[in-house]
Structures are given as C-alpha cells and as structure tokens.
Simulated scan of single mutants.
Amino acid sequence: MRKLLAEFFGTYWLVFGGCGSALFAAGIPDLGIGFAGVSLAFGLTVLTMAYAVGHISGGHFNPAVTLGLWAGGRFEAKDILPYILSQCVGAIAAAGTLFFILSGKDGFAIDNTKAGAFASNGFDAFSPQGYSMTAAFTAEFVLTLFFLLIILGATDKLANGKFAGVAIGLGLTLIHLISIPITNTSVNPARSLSQAVFAGGEPLSQVWLFWAAPILGAIVAGFIYKNLLQDKS
C-alpha cells in the first residue's frame, strides 16, 4: 500500500505541476513561462518526487515506465496493474483539482475543438503545430524509448544512483523541449488520460495513441537495455 500511495502522489504531482504550469502560467502575456517553462516544470515534478518517494515505490509515476522496467527485468509482472491503476487515479485526481481551480476564474470553459484543450495531447488538427498521426506516433515512441534508456541507465547498479533523479528529471525536460509543438508531449499514458477525460471530445478519442506509442517505446527500450546495454558480468 505504501508503494501504491507513493505512485499516486508522485503522479498527482507530475500532472498538477506539469499540466498546471501549462494551464496557469504558460500563456500570460509578457510574464508567461512559455514552452521552456512548462518543459522545466515537468522535469522538476519528476526530479522532486524521485527524491521524495522514489525510495518507496521506485518512482515510476507513469504506466510506460512501469512496463519498460518490467521489460528490462527490473519490475515484477504481478505489480504492473496495481501500479498503473494508482498512477491513473493520481493523474485524474490532479486533473480534477486543476479543473476545480480553473473553475474559479470568470469565463472559464474548455474548448475541446482546439489543440491543447485543458493541456491535452493530440495529433493532426489537435497537434499544437499540426503534426500528423504518424509523426506524433513516431515522436512519442522514440522519446519514450530514450526516456526509458535514461531511467534504466541512471538507475543501473553500476551507475551513481545519487544523481539518478537529476538525470531523469533533466531527460524529461529535454523531451518536452523537443515535443511540445508536436503532441503537447505525453510520454506518459496516465498524464494523457487525465487531461483527455476532462477535455472530452476529440482529445479523448485520440488518447489511444498516447497509450500505444509510449508503451511500445518503453517496452522496446527495456528489451534493448536488458539484452544489449546492461553489463551482466
């Protein structure tokens, strides 16, 4: 139960901090934090929670990470479903909190006919810069693959584990710097689901891609690291 609570709170913080920065602070004229600020916010959520609760649950906060660690031989199959459920509940709870806060602003409404509605992910007309489904799938697959390689390498028994959280947090920051214009950046199915549930409409109908591509990328990364990169001596 402690592990599941850690995953709940870690994923909650990731969505609240990352998506919250996009919703509250990114678009303010002259003073807004923009894409770079949102990218840093997502990285900081993972970095801070990796040190806060990572020692309890392993600090996944992401269904793709859980499955990638399983593929890499670092996580037991019996714990996959409880972890993913905890992550999704935490993400949706955070999205609910964001919705409640935003509802306190006059004129608030989610326009789910536009890209990035309620910080949702999307492709084609729902990509921030109009990238196709194929382009979005490729970006999410490749970026999640490299995110898992960073995680698996930084947490390897031969690595300096004290700095794993820094490497992982900066890795997620870089991923967002690359891909916010493409998909609004997912690499995390729970994060995508939570925002799409509240946005509804086309963002919700497109959420399948933001489960399939990150999970496939993570699993491929797990097998690559386990079989090609890991020192087995």
Results as ranks from 00 to 15, higher is better:
residue 144 T to Y: 03
residue 149 L to M: 05
residue 123 F to D: 02
residue 145 L to H: 10
residue 17 G to D: 07
residue 91 A to C: 01
residue 229 L to S: 07
residue 19 C to V: 14
residue 34 G to A: 13
residue 55 H to A: 12
residue 227 N to P: 00
residue 177 L to V: 12
residue 21 S to T: 15
residue 172 L to S: 09
residue 183 T to K: 05
residue 41 A to K: 09
residue 157 K to W: 06
residue 169 G to H: 10
residue 17 G to T: 08
residue 4 L to S: 10
residue 93 A to P: 08
residue 108 F to V: 05
residue 65 V to L: 04
residue 7 E to G: 09
residue 32 G to C: 07
residue 154 A to F: 06
residue 217 G to H: 09
residue 99 F to E: 11
residue 151 I to L: 12
residue 208 W to G: 04
residue 100 F to C: 13
residue 149 L to C: 03
residue 81 L to E: 02
residue 26 A to S: 14
residue 36 A to M: 13
residue 123 F to L: 03
residue 178 I to H: 07
residue 2 R to F: 11
residue 138 T to L: 15
residue 99 F to I: 03
residue 97 T to K: 04
residue 12 Y to K: 03
residue 6 A to R: 06
residue 46 V to I: 15
residue 78 K to G: 05
residue 14 L to H: 05
residue 69 L to T: 08
residue 129 Q to C: 07
residue 67 L to Q: 03
residue 51 Y to P: 01
residue 126 F to G: 08
residue 176 H to N: 05
residue 162 K to C: 03
residue 33 I to T: 09
residue 102 L to E: 07
residue 50 A to I: 10
residue 128 P to Q: 01
residue 149 L to Y: 05
residue 112 N to E: 07
residue 142 V to C: 10
residue 40 L to Y: 08
residue 16 F to L: 15
residue 16 F to M: 11
residue 95 A to Y: 00
residue 5 L to M: 14
residue 144 T to F: 03
residue 13 W to G: 12
residue 68 G to R: 01
residue 103 S to T: 11
residue 216 L to T: 13
residue 19 C to L: 10
residue 53 V to S: 12
residue 222 G to S: 05
residue 124 D to T: 06
residue 121 N to W: 02
residue 84 I to P: 04
residue 71 A to C: 03
residue 39 S to D: 02
residue 175 I to F: 03
residue 227 N to C: 05
residue 102 L to H: 08
residue 81 L to C: 01
residue 60 H to N: 13
residue 3 K to A: 15
residue 41 A to Y: 10
residue 92 I to N: 05
residue 115 A to N: 09
residue 139 A to C: 13
residue 106 D to L: 10
residue 222 G to C: 04
residue 110 I to M: 00
residue 207 V to A: 00
residue 106 D to C: 02
residue 165 G to S: 10
residue 224 I to M: 13
residue 45 T to V: 10
residue 56 I to D: 10
residue 81 L to M: 13
residue 47 L to K: 09
residue 150 I to M: 12
residue 24 F to A: 13
residue 16 F to E: 05
residue 126 F to D: 06
residue 82 P to N: 11
residue 111 D to F: 01
residue 124 D to N: 15
residue 84 I to G: 04
residue 203 P to D: 09
residue 188 N to F: 06
residue 159 A to C: 04
residue 158 L to Q: 13
residue 32 G to P: 09
residue 49 M to R: 02
residue 61 F to T: 04
residue 231 D to K: 15
residue 26 A to I: 08
residue 81 L to S: 02
residue 22 A to T: 07
residue 74 R to K: 15
residue 167 A to V: 13
residue 232 K to A: 13
residue 173 T to S: 12
residue 119 A to V: 05
residue 1 M to N: 12
residue 176 H to V: 00
residue 136 A to T: 14
residue 32 G to H: 08
residue 163 F to D: 12
residue 31 L to W: 15
residue 32 G to W: 11
residue 223 F to N: 03
residue 72 G to L: 02
residue 8 F to A: 01
residue 40 L to A: 14
residue 167 A to R: 11
residue 48 T to G: 06
residue 11 T to N: 04
residue 178 I to S: 11
residue 167 A to T: 10
residue 5 L to A: 13
residue 75 F to C: 04
residue 167 A to I: 12
residue 229 L to K: 03
residue 140 E to Y: 01
residue 102 L to Y: 07
residue 182 I to F: 01
residue 215 I to F: 10
